[in-house]
Simulated assay, not measured.
Amino acid sequence: MGTTRQFDRSRRAFVATGIAAGSAALAGCITGDGSGGSGDEDSYTVTMAPMGEVEFDGVPEDAFVTFTQYADMAVALGHGDAVTTLFAPEMSGSTMNKFYDRLEGVSFDWAGLENPLEDGVTKEELYNYESDVHFLDPSYVLTTQDDWAQSDVEEIAETVGPWIGSYHSGVQSEPAEAYADSYEYYTLWELFETVAAVFREAQRYEDLAAVYEDLRSHIESNLPSGDERPTVARVTLGDGVFYAYHLNTSGFWQAETRPLGAHDALADVEWSGDWGEVDYETMLDADPDVILHLWGITSNYDVEGVRERLENHAAGSELAAVRNDRVVASGMRYQGPIMNLFQLEMTAKQLYPEQFGEWPGYESGASYPEIPEGEQLFDRQRVADIVTGA
């Protein structure tokens, strides 16, 4: 690990490093005895690119959260109450609870949370929140927000609270130029390990990671041979266009599809951004067996309405997935560990019903469907006990 840089901070208890250029960070790495070399037995460091080594002198009680994966991670670690902000809270929070409804004693109170991205991220906003930690990639700030410089990022880390996040790990996109030499990409579960280190909840992380490994192993060992796997398009229907995402490429946005090894119907279609736009002609050329409608389980989309729109469209009605009633509600790309477990189970059943049991379908606005215990791909009670500390 690199050298920890510390800053004098009179107003806040948390001390963060700035950007440690060229650091070879390990997700969730905590140094030595957790003292961080400061002589304070309660302090500890967490290492992650591009932030470098970040030092805390206590577990965060107020967390600035943007994308849903970090809120889901906080809930999974027993720290959901620390979340004070959330991107699109009504959509994100209600979707999280659709999954949590199947876990005894687990819920997330999102009412009253503000969307920190609604009017862009500003230093004034972050000073007003006075958060103990910002679960947001500083590279995201530099690449998407006007009037931010690396010096502003370091100012917030010094005077308010540290940054922890890796936005570009979603599809392994290019980071801001300032971090080109220090950026590293993480899987969803490596990101979760880092957040667990921030909250000092290593045991909860390990226990949930064991559930995930069991689920993934079960799925991978029961997949049919390659020629028996369907062609799949992972898209969101817009106005005359499909917003498209690949299935099997690197990045945690594909955490619920890549392990399933289906054939990406749009594998040969390229785009330069984090997602692409394809027209009906391209979709007809690809003609997928299954359409996974991303965001379909959120309150923003009515999957029955999506099917109806496709059925009533001259080109859409010709798609095999539409004709064979295999347009299904998919989850969120901003998924944390609990969501990932459910979304893996959901997608496995949608793509391979003979191997993993029939998907019962999803009714828009409802909770994640009830699945008989014998057909569940992971143990709900085991997960609930880990999260609640039972």
Rank of each mutant, 00 (worst) to 15 (best):
M51K: 05
T66L: 14
H263E: 11
S169F: 02
Y334G: 08
F378Y: 02
A196Q: 03
G112I: 00
W275N: 15
Y183T: 07
W359T: 08
G336T: 01
T95N: 05
D147T: 11
A82Q: 02
D146W: 12
V46G: 02
L136C: 03
S217M: 07
F242G: 04
Q69Y: 09
T84D: 02
T31M: 14
F356L: 08
T84L: 07
D152Q: 04
D214E: 14
R380K: 09
L294Y: 08
T31E: 15
E358Q: 13
T144A: 10
D132M: 08
L260T: 10
F87M: 09
E118P: 12
L188W: 04
A20Y: 10
M332R: 02
D33L: 15
S367D: 15
L113M: 06
G331E: 00
D81R: 03
W295N: 08
M332F: 07
V133Y: 00
M1H: 05
D62I: 11
Y129P: 01
V232G: 01
P372R: 11
Q172N: 15
K123P: 10
T194V: 07
R11I: 07
Y129H: 06
V141F: 04
L215W: 07
E124I: 15
G261T: 06
F135N: 00
E256K: 01
E114Q: 12
S38K: 12
T85Q: 00
Y186H: 11
G226I: 06
L142A: 11
G161W: 03
N97Q: 02
T4Y: 10
V211N: 07
A197L: 08
L319K: 05
F64C: 06
Y70G: 00
V303E: 06
P360H: 13
S317L: 08
S107W: 00
E118Y: 15
C29Y: 11
V232L: 02
A320C: 03
M51C: 09
Y205R: 05
A202E: 15
P353H: 05
E354A: 12
W275D: 10
G261L: 08
Y167A: 09
L188A: 13
T159L: 14
S131V: 05
E90I: 03
M332I: 09
G273S: 14
S182N: 09
L191E: 05
G120H: 05
A76S: 08
I371A: 08
L142F: 04
E177Q: 14
I291R: 02
H263F: 04
Y245D: 06
D109Q: 04
V211D: 03
Y140A: 10
G105V: 02
E177N: 13
F7T: 13
R380Y: 13
H79S: 02
A149E: 15
E193P: 05
P89H: 06
A384K: 01
A82N: 04
W253N: 07
D132N: 11
E304D: 15
G34R: 13
N340M: 10
D207L: 12
E154M: 14
A210M: 05
E213N: 13
Q172C: 11
E184H: 10
S38P: 12
D302S: 11
G32S: 15
F99A: 01
Y167Q: 08
G80S: 03
D119S: 14
L215H: 08
W148S: 03
E206K: 07
S272W: 04
Q69N: 13
D227F: 11
T122I: 12
E318F: 05
G105C: 02
T282D: 14
F252N: 07
V54N: 14
P50Y: 11
R326Y: 06
L86A: 00
L260P: 14
